[in-house]
Design a protein around this nucleic acid. Structure first.
Lengths: 333, 333
DNA sequence: ATGAAAGCGCTAACAT
DNA sequence: ATGTTAGCGCTTTCAT
């Protein structure tokens, strides 16, 4: 019992038509007489014929598959984006090949190359720091690319984000207005322009507009993890900060728990605003006030944008900025 | 500037060899004279040739792509499995097509069919209730299937899990030993054999061995979500339970927070043991004691098993049971 | 060790 | 409306 596959040819023979007609029926081409269509469909059903997408891809040069490069699916932030991407992909009859990169430059390149070898029709890239090398690969290839939740300093490819600068500015301002003179800025690598440029600038602007001077000692660069947050406590205490804007929820909750566990009361003695409004921020006690990002939508809109690019449709604006919010919960006064 | 692709033919011409030889070089076939190999590799490099995986797939009938059916990537439990799957897939030069099913029977079938149409070499399935229909599809297809964190009552396909029954029994026993006479069993749909058969039986055995009688009123069937957990409070209070074994961390933390918010002290007045030992259980205050499952490994081992199946290697045992643990944290005495 | 040639299963002109 | 016929880019016998 070998894996005997039924091909378009078998269907054509059984239905006494040409393969072209079968192909037309399968592809919904209107140029088929209803009676013929019916006959062909019956045979397809009877033979349980399933078009071979690989052959199709080779002949048509379209695979209806897009590549998704993600730092880590098991990270809640990216997983939300991925879910939005897949839902819209499905809606437009695409499948996604998901590839984890760990944000590693080399892996990103190698993964992109295998994706291109597989002839994906488009690529959605999520990452932190967009290296020159990967940007080179993007422009060398004719395959459309969209960045989801990631910034291209040169706007060469499509991208979907929120206005990180304004969001951080809002959060910082709120903290200052409530009386904090020393607000810490806690983020991931400053090499990521989202942190080092947008968020940091928003933070600085807020300080400036409120007559506070920027203090290097209040800038904390950290890994995005709960454990890293727990470790922040000592340095935070020494800095004299009484509040913090944090770029990541795990990090924020780690900081929160380490403060609380050390007898510092949040929000009365220390206020925190985080950035992703994830379940982590709701679960924590107190719950953590947060910027709210439409993560699912960022993914969904990225994929939608990519479908347009793949279709060579006219794009009004390939740099999309989605709205954000500021949710006040228990970690602010 | 059209997307002018260079093919194996271009390389063959430039290197003054046949396509067959280029193919051999690309595929690492040893039957090539070193000098020839070198010459070909130079041309490949110069022309920046990249083998077309689709053509390759059509000719060889292997796509080096596996399909992964997942209820929801944005769920931490499944995301961890997915990460393990992808890492091992990458290790063995496979890519994964990830498809969300929402655990919906219809979607599972349709997604499986598009995956098979794309000629994936294998499928990893994660789901709750394995319907007869999908099991039928599995057996009709010659494509190997492995279940990750999901049970096939008939053991027809490969699967990787922990011993849910023993784990639940251990957790329940611990709760009983610490003095609780009424321990609630909180899980997702009992239609999922993991819940309705394994976990529930483990729970019942623990009761029995400790001289307690099973009480229907202590069985809570719920959605796996934080919100659903929050809503459990009233029913839980009325049931008279003073402890609970919970099948999902979000659910457990929801229950925990609702109890705490209502003035019930955990663990002194109510004890909780959850099942996934995820970050949620660490973040919560008190942190939640938990069964620990090697989620990443379940994914990794599933994929490893699938590679063997795809390779038609001999399998010692296609039903793999991985070890679990019991981590005592703040929600138990 | 290398080449020639026949597909793989389908789409897409081009005819009719 | 339907059929014919080239490919798509590669792997894989089978020769040599």
């Amino acid at each position: 019992m070998e894996k005997q596959t039924i091909t378009i040819y078998d269907v054509a023979r059984e239905a006494a038509v040409s393969m072209a007609t079968v192909s037309r029926v399968v592809n919904g081409n209107p140029n088929v007489k209803p009676a013929t269509r019916k006959k062909v469909l019956e045979v397809i059903d009877r033979l349980d014929y399933r078009p071979n997408a690989v052959a199709r891809g080779l002949a048509s040069k379209r695979t209806t598959t897009v590549g998704v490069i993600i730092p880590d699916v098991s990270n809640a932030y990216f997983a939300s984006l991925a879910r939005g991407i897949d839902d819209v992909a499905t809606m437009y009859k695409y499948n996604i090949i998901l590839a984890n990169s760990d944000g590693d430059d080399k892996k990103e390149i190698s993964v992109l190359n295998t994706l291109l070898a597989k002839q994906v029709d488009g690529v959605i890239f999520m990452g932190h720091h967009l290296t020159e090398e990967i940007r080179g690969e993007f422009s060398r290839s004719k395959t459309p690319v969209v960045l989801a939740g990631s910034i291209d300093p040169d706007d060469q490819v499509g991208s979907v984000n929120i206005d990180y600068k304004e969001a951080t500015k809002d959060a910082t301002t709120k903290l200052i207005k409530s009386g904090n003179k020393k607000v810490a800025f806690v983020s991931g690598s400053l090499l990521d322009p989202i942190n080092g440029v947008y968020r940091l600038n928003g933070y600085k602007e807020a300080l400036k507009e409120n007559g506070l001077t920027f203090n290097e000692g209040l800038v904390f660069e950290s890994e995005y993890s709960y454990k890293a947050g727990l470790k922040l406590h000592d340095r935070m205490a020494n800095s004299g900060a009484t509040a913090a804007v944090v770029a990541d929820d795990e990090l924020a909750v780690g900081l929160l728990n380490s403060l609380t566990d050390n007898g510092i009361s949040v929000p009365s003695e220390f206020e925190i605003i985080t950035s992703n409004n994830s379940l982590f921020s709701d679960i924590a006690r107190p719950s953590v006030s947060s910027i709210s990002q439409p993560l699912y939508d960022i993914g969904a809109v990225s994929m939608r944008l990519l479908t347009k690019l793949m279709n060579k449709e006219d794009i009004d604006e390939k740099t999309v900025i989605l709205p954000y919010g500021l949710i006040e919960k228990g970690s602010t006064k």
